[in-house]
Design a protein around this nucleic acid. Sequence first.
DNA 1: TTTTAAACCTAGTAAATAACTAGGTAATTA
DNA 2: TAATTACCTAGTTATTTACTAGGTTTAAAA
Lengths: 158, 158
Amino acid sequence: MRLSTKGRYAVTAMLDLTLNGSDGPVTLAEISETQGISLSYLEQLFAALRSKQLVKGVRGPGGGYYLGREADEISIADIICAVDEWVEFTRCGGNRDCQDGKRCLTHNLWDDLSNEIFSFLQSITLAELVERGGLKEHGCRKEKERESIMPRADTAAA
Amino acid sequence: MRLSTKGRYAVTAMLDLTLNGSDGPVTLAEISETQGISLSYLEQLFAALRSKQLVKGVRGPGGGYYLGREADEISIADIICAVDEWVEFTRCGGNRDCQDGKRCLTHNLWDDLSNEIFSFLQSITLAELVERGGLKEHGCRKEKERESIMPRADTAAA
DNA sequence: TTTTAAACCTAGTAAATAACTAGGTAATTA
DNA sequence: TAATTACCTAGTTATTTACTAGGTTTAAAA
């Protein structure tokens, strides 16, 4: 499991879909504007998300993106795995007898950690994240200002 | 908490010290040879480890490195934090009201995950790792071949 | 039917980092 | 005094991140 800002961007964008997708598709231009992520970078992230059926694209004017499944059926692990492809913590390529028939000494460590992180992220869905954050009421973009989910890079504290 | 091969190299090297440090200091040349990590890169890693008192250097012929504390008093988190300096998962710089007085929606998520990973790695010491791996008997480099702890990059499976 | 707004696609680029190389100096032992 | 080690500094290459620039399709709206 790899953890980077890339995966966090993807989670942020998916959260934006969750919050604002109830009345029509959300455009990447909107997400780009609100969350401060470049449009073309979002397109790349969404290409990966789409290939895993986590989002559905609608072309043409009035188009945009929907969640590919219900928000309570998409885990954070799903999202991160889609954009940050799995990188083994070990160098063994995943085979269990990497060291002359037995597993190398650190193998179990990184394996366990990897599982730990994965199950943590898999246990949290987009729906739960919205509930937990208590920000469900901010989702209606027709009546209120859209809201940034993550601080912008340029306004982040030093 | 950042997780990269850098931190894994450091853990591997520290494990080598743990296994082979019982009869005199271990040289970086030995670790470099056995674990397949470049000498100069090891020197950089050990500069960081030394600054955190995780290792003690002994200069001159017959010199090398010892563990800075007992193996059961050094956690994996200690090692990784020494070489992979902490990078916030959030962009908030750690302040709790990054989003107009309230915490951003993903803040708690990354915060929780970060804590999860940290406490996992903090709960495991070098000593435990050696016991768990059941490789304690391989530590005597005078009588047996030294053993690679992690597969070399060039021999790793494709 | 034309225009327009969006997804969708490809290639390239700048910045950061990881991992390494090269070439030293300083301390300690034999 | 010579050898061996830690210790230090300044580069270099490869990879990845995040972005830019330019397209093409699709479908709604004018």
